[in-house]
Amino acid sequence: MNSPATAKPRVAVVFGGRSSEHAISCVTAGAVLDALDRERYDVVPVGIAPDGRWVLESDDTDRLRLTSAERLPHVDGERASVQLLREEGHTDLVVTEASQPPRALGQVDVVFPVLHGPWGEDGTIQGMLEMAGVRYVGAGVLASAVSMDKAYMKVVLEAAGLPVMPGVVITRREWERDPDVCRERVAALGFPVFCKPARGGSSIGISKVHDASELDAAVAEAQRHDPKVLVEVSAEAAREVECGVLEALDGTVETSMPAEIRIGGDHEFYDFAAKYLPAEHTALDVPADLPDDVAARMRELSVRAFEAVGGEGLARVDFFVLPDGRLVVNELNTMPGFTPTSMYPRMWEASGLGYRELVDRLVQLALRRGTGLR
């Protein structure tokens, strides 16, 4: 814990990052910073600029709000640099400014990494924090890495007996060496398909491919964000329903009421604009209108998916409910969208756990959990 002079645990909220989800991470951070109880915690906002530079960010959360696709919030990379410095028995936050000697902010007790996408949600920062001996919120290295890579996640979930949509992986090398073979593998799935970055999120770089003539452009768009592309069968006429998973302080795993996303208007699927920008055609039903047995089955599969990847802390498990009533796991997110209006907190609100209580639970879980093998 922190020093006796500063009895409150110090929580560093780390956000931004190098991925294409930089702006969404900033939005999430603003909500978490507002929710953390300053009477209980010493809170430090730490931003990672798009070039990877760590800075001591402003505590002004108004600048982290998302108001339009043309004005995306971002980390100010010109601010004072921040480093984690490992000392004997503890790790300090050290600030460096031009023409000034380094100054220590003191020991960091917990990092809340609200990073989305590669270089944050994929096990990289988790590995760094493990090496530094700093506790952190959320999944560990392996669960983060497996869940970020949708291709490997499907392998793990399928091996655990969980239902997933059929798909194929196209690497940049395969596409450059023999694109015709790649096209044949996709055609064997049957159209329509979805083409997406294997290690992306927030629906960035995703295209629905209705026939073979649209495939090349879709692969190119996905490769703008990730050289590894996942192509999956489209779950036609399926309902998109999600379920929250959360560890309790006693180590048991709880699930929220499921919630459904209904898309209309010009959105053919749950794309970036439908997720994050105000839209009259996107409806979120919390809780979802599901038969009791289907909801119970979904909650059971959510726990199984969480345990299959070795999840810790929290996760959001996304499902397709097929027209015949079957459930298919679409993906598992170890750091889901986390604003008060995001699906994960809204599901827990409907289940009796408010946003501030949810944030506090996650910090308390991290404080109780050590680093290293467990």
Rank of each mutant, 00 (worst) to 15 (best):
A198T: 05
R199F: 11
G200Q: 10
G201H: 06
S202N: 11
S202V: 09
S202E: 11
S203C: 01
I204P: 00
I204V: 13
I206A: 11
K208F: 02
K208L: 11
K208I: 00
H210P: 00
D211N: 12
S213Q: 14
S213L: 11
L215Q: 02
D216C: 07
A217F: 10
A218K: 03
A218W: 05
V219H: 04
A220Y: 10
A220K: 09
A220H: 06
A220S: 14
E221S: 12
Q223M: 15
Q223K: 06
R224M: 12
D226K: 08
D226T: 10
V229L: 02
L230P: 00
E232C: 02
V233S: 10
S234Y: 01
A237F: 08
A238V: 08
R239V: 03
E240R: 06
V241P: 04
C243G: 00
C243L: 07
C243Y: 05
G244L: 00
G244Y: 00
G244Q: 01
V245W: 01
L246H: 03
L246V: 05
E247W: 05
L249D: 12
L249G: 07
L249R: 04
D250G: 08
V253R: 04
E254F: 04
T255I: 04
S256L: 08
M257Y: 14
M257W: 13
P258Q: 14
A259E: 12
I261G: 03
I263R: 05
I263S: 00
G264K: 11
G264M: 07
G264N: 11
G265P: 02
G265T: 00
D266Q: 15
D266N: 12
H267F: 15
H267A: 10
E268I: 14
F269N: 02
Y270C: 06
Y270K: 02
Y270Q: 08
D271Q: 03
D271I: 01
D271V: 00
A273P: 03
A273K: 08
A274L: 05
Y276W: 15
P278C: 11
A279V: 09
E280M: 09
H281E: 15
H281P: 10
L284V: 14
L284A: 14
L284Y: 12
D285C: 15
D285R: 07
V286Q: 12
V286R: 07
L290T: 06
D292C: 13
D292P: 12
D292W: 04
D293H: 14
D293T: 13
A295D: 05
A295Q: 08
A295Y: 06
A296R: 07
R297N: 13
R297A: 15
M298S: 08
M298R: 02
E300Y: 04
E300G: 09
L301M: 13
E307W: 06
E307Q: 15
E307F: 02
A308W: 06
V309I: 15
G311W: 01
E312W: 11
E312S: 14
G313Y: 01
G313M: 04
